[in-house]
């Protein structure tokens, strides 16, 4: 019998399973001073890179160019690219309700279509001035309601998300801690009290 099947058979036996799971009758685990040493770990984000899976390759490249334009490195702080924002937004949009997914995909597709229509080039390969000519007419100040035009809405949402994801990135925090004066100029580096799940229930 293979090991996994053996374990399944033991676990299915009401008498045997508790003995196996209890680390043996002589276990002193739980008594004072017997806890094993805490195992150190690193955040996954420090050990690996994200694998984007939501946007198409051209949408992701368009988002990279857009992020670099909207939030470049300033005042010695990292920009959106250095902060891994396009990859983070791929994760965020991919985890989001359909409305945000549609907003992002349609918005990025529109930028690419405009680049082709006006300059016969892909958006990521445009010059800065060409990008400005596409983006600036789409900008609109707003307070509570984002602009009704879906393209302006997309740019408003992307601009806010890219900025927040940059300011709240690990890279930004590292730069700010190495030069506190930068933190004052650019904001960001938020630290706060996080509420853990409070006595959560398990699904029925």
């Amino acid at each position: 019998m293979k090991r996994r099947r053996l374990l399944q058979a033991i676990a299915a036996s009401p008498a045997a399973a508790p003995a196996l799971l209890a680390q043996g009758p002589g276990s002193r685990l739980g008594q004072a001073g017997t806890a094993p040493a805490r195992i150190a770990t690193v955040p996954a984000g420090e050990a690996a890179t994200p694998a984007p899976r939501f946007f198409s390759p051209i949408q992701l490249e368009t988002l990279r160019k857009l992020a670099a334009t909207l939030m470049p490195p300033l005042n010695g702080n990292p920009g959106a690219i250095e902060a891994g924002v396009p990859e983070f937004l791929d994760f965020l949009a991919g985890s989001s309700p359909a409305a945000r997914q549609k907003l992002y995909r349609a918005g990025l597709d529109h930028l690419e279509a405009e680049a082709k229509r006006l300059h016969a080039k892909s958006f990521p390969s445009l010059e800065d001035g060409q990008i400005d000519a596409i983006l600036k007419p789409m900008l609109a100040p707003w307070t509570y309601d984002p602009p009704a035009d879906p393209r302006k809405h997309f740019l408003a949402a992307a601009r806010a998300d890219i900025r927040a994801a940059t300011l709240n990135s690990r890279e930004w925090a590292a730069a700010a801690s190495s030069a506190p004066s930068r933190r004052r100029r650019g904001g960001g580096g938020t630290v706060g009290l996080y509420w853990l799940p409070i006595d959560p229930t398990r699904p029925a």
Binding site: P43, F88, L92, S95, D161, A164, A165, L167, N168, S169, R170, W172, A173, G189, T190, V191, G192, L193, Y194, W195, L196
Partner: peptide, 14 residues
């Protein structure tokens, strides 16, 4: 409650 930086949260505080 624990103190956390935004980048330690799963969605960067968003």
């Amino acid at each position: 409650r624990v103190t956390k930086a935004a980048h330690e949260l799963p969605y960067r505080g968003l």
